[in-house]
């Protein structure tokens, strides 16, 4: 079967999916959508730009908190809150990126981590705005979107559009430049391209999309917590991307789906989900660094 028809079938299946699901599983399906988007946005940095961010949760959190604050305190509709969330996460990414992108590699990892923890502290301490430790709860969309199935379709449309945009970008001249500078930034400089501005733009784009994912999730889960900005939260997109395979566009989506399902199943049995996730990371890193998509590709190409 060719790619367009496969894509069409996948989209139709995604549309039809919640018709056979209970509300609980519809929420899980929304979670898969959200984290697929989140993981692909992260992979713009890691897989395409070669920038390992340990603070991507900052933008997911900023998106979520912006929507939560505007809806809860301002009583604003989603039509205002969502664009505001995009703007806020873009601005945050521009500021953090300005400092972090100066030095790619180890500094970048540390700085993104440190800045995210700064935002975590703000979320904890600015109780008037963020509710501190208790977060902001009881969020709800107005009208038809308050029904899980409609919210699922709403989320699906946003996610498909955002994924299509990112797919377009990674295959554009900009995306090719990004992949070139992943391996050899100095050579890119010497063909007349300003490496830093391209890295910064990618960082802002990835942060904005992560903020969008956080905004969708704030409404579907009904609340936001400071934990969204905690350091553990930044491991989530990394694990998803590596689990699914960060050398492909689709890999992080697969990783997100597997991760979310694993979490649902495992955290039903034990509160030590982080411990299990840690072990999964160790196994991944030591045994299958190419992730699920890398493995399936190798099997398909004949086992070597």
């Amino acid at each position: 079967m060719n790619r367009p028809s496969l894509l069409a079938i996948a989209i139709l299946a995604a549309i039809a999916l919640p018709l056979g699901l209970t509300d609980f599983w519809t929420f899980i399906a929304i979670e898969v959508l959200v984290f697929a988007l989140y993981a692909v946005s992260f992979n713009l940095l890691l897989g395409y730009g070669g920038m390992l961010s340990f603070g991507h949760a900052a933008f997911f959190g900023v998106g979520g908190y912006t929507v939560a604050i505007l809806v809860k305190h301002g009583g604003l509709p989603l039509a205002v809150a969502f664009p505001a969330a995009l703007a806020m996460s873009a601005i945050t990414a521009a500021i953090i990126g300005f400092f972090s992108v100066r030095r790619i590699g180890i500094y970048f990892a540390m700085l993104t981590f440190a800045f995210q923890m700064l935002l975590y502290t703000v979320a904890l301490k600015a109780t008037g705005l963020t509710g501190g430790d208790d977060g902001i709860t009881g969020l709800k969309a107005a009208g038809a979107l308050s029904k899980p199935i409609y919210y699922y379709w709403f989320a699906l449309i946003i996610v498909i559009v955002a994924l299509a945009l990112m797919h377009r970008i990674v295959h554009s001249p900009f995306g090719m430049t990004l992949q070139a500078l992943r391996g050899n930034p100095r050579r890119v400089e010497y063909v007349g391209i300003n490496v830093r501005t391209h890295q910064l733009a990618t960082f802002v784009l990835a942060g904005t999309i992560a903020g969008l994912a956080g905004a969708i999730f704030a409404i579907s889960s009904g609340n936001v917590f400071p934990g969204w900005l905690n350091w553990t939260a930044s491991a989530t997109p990394i694990v998803m991307a590596v689990l699914g395979g960060f050398r492909t566009f689709i890999g992080p989506m697969v990783g997100a789906a597997v991760y979310v399902m694993l979490e649902v199943v495992i955290s039903g049995h034990t509160e030590y989900w982080p411990l299990i996730m840690g072990v999964i990371i160790v196994v991944l890193v030591l045994m299958m660094p190419e992730g699920i998509m890398g493995m399936t590709r190798r099997i398909r190409d004949g086992k070597r």
Binding site: I106, T232, V242, P274, L275, M277, V285, L286, P289
Partner: peptide, 28 residues
């Protein structure tokens, strides 16, 4: 030691995983 030849992303990720593992073991 098995990771010194690998991309440095994996080394960082491994130390990150240790945080999860030790953090939870301490609770246990």
């Amino acid at each position: 030691r098995p990771l010194y030849q690998a991309a440095h992303e994996f080394q960082l990720l491994l130390t990150f995983a240790l945080v999860f593992i030790v953090g939870d073991l301490v609770k246990l």
